[in-house]
Design a protein around this nucleic acid. Sequence first.
DNA 1: TATAACTAAACGAACGTTCATTTATATTTG
DNA 2: CAAATATAAATGAACGTTCGTTTAGTTATA
Lengths: 195, 195
Amino acid sequence: MRKRDINKEIIIREKAIEMIVHQGFDGLSMHKLAKASGVSVATIYIYFKDREDLIQSLYTEETKKMAEATLVNFDPESHFDIGLKVQWRNRLKYCLENPYSMTFMEQVKHSPLIDRSVMDRRFLDAMSKFVHTAIERKELIPLPVEIYWSIAFAPLYQLVKFHISKTSMPGREPFVFNDERTDQALSLVLKALKP
Amino acid sequence: MRKRDINKEIIIREKAIEMIVHQGFDGLSMHKLAKASGVSVATIYIYFKDREDLIQSLYTEETKKMAEATLVNFDPESHFDIGLKVQWRNRLKYCLENPYSMTFMEQVKHSPLIDRSVMDRRFLDAMSKFVHTAIERKELIPLPVEIYWSIAFAPLYQLVKFHISKTSMPGREPFVFNDERTDQALSLVLKALKP
DNA sequence: TATAACTAAACGAACGTTCATTTATATTTG
DNA sequence: CAAATATAAATGAACGTTCGTTTAGTTATA
């Protein structure tokens, strides 16, 4: 029995994400993907049931990678200020080191027909515990979780998008991340969320 | 000489946006769009140069509509608290009354190959003046515009997405907007941005 | 030698776009 | 006023291409 060449799957995944990032879902065709990956079209169907399964699988895997990166050095029991800072640092690091992954996921999140409900249990539990502990300790004001999330993280992702797109606001030079700006934004968020 | 039936263009635009919202850019084909609009394929090419021009035109028009809606009753000279509240109210109103338009624009914004630099001059000028006046009057702390934007509006749009998608955070009942929640979120944003 | 990995070629369907023709109507003509 | 004319709107059929997927056959290795 012949062994699978796992490099094949890896390169297919990479090229697929590249194609989607550069040309959108429109631009991802199985023929073009096969050619770009140096592989026969039929080979793709060994690793993925069909085109939809391919995209879904990409999303699931990238989501998992990001969730893992987000939890590095994160202690749900830590003080709210510290925990949120670690979260910001981890998410920022992942996004800047994996801009294709980030851009791909953003595209999926804003397009229909893909199941976005896949979420790592460990990740959700850690997040939930962190927030509830912080509220109990009065380090965070009590809030509906969506409002908390929208203020704690939406600004960060917006800034990442500014940074990655390099377009910034029209007519200005691009926004680039640095420690000072990150700290400034984070401190404003903390100001909003703390009692 | 025969007159154009402007209803045709309107219905083509509507159906195109519907198709993109429900089936993504993948799902928008000229044949299907023609059928859905009750029109011949060739007719679409009277109103739009090609598929790309169609999508670009949709985006330009929807952007313009939203910019106009955003400026209703907005006075760039007003106090920062008031101005931001009007902005929130206007954007929220537009998004909730035109969820297709909003969802379509979010999809375009997160997909490549479309020129997103089209922006209404009047809109940009009003925004710019509003921010600078507020900083001068010390009603708003001095900030890079991207950081200001990310904190002032990213949370609002994230909440709109929660509301529209009805998926909310996994495993919970959907987030629904009401005046109390809007005011709560806005007051946190103001807390972050005010000196 | 058995078996799964892998491939090239082929399938019908659907794609974006064009073209030759018909239809409707504003304008000109009688 | 009605008939003729001009012209752009509108069409259905057709174009060649590319699409997602399958199939029949080959290759590598446990």
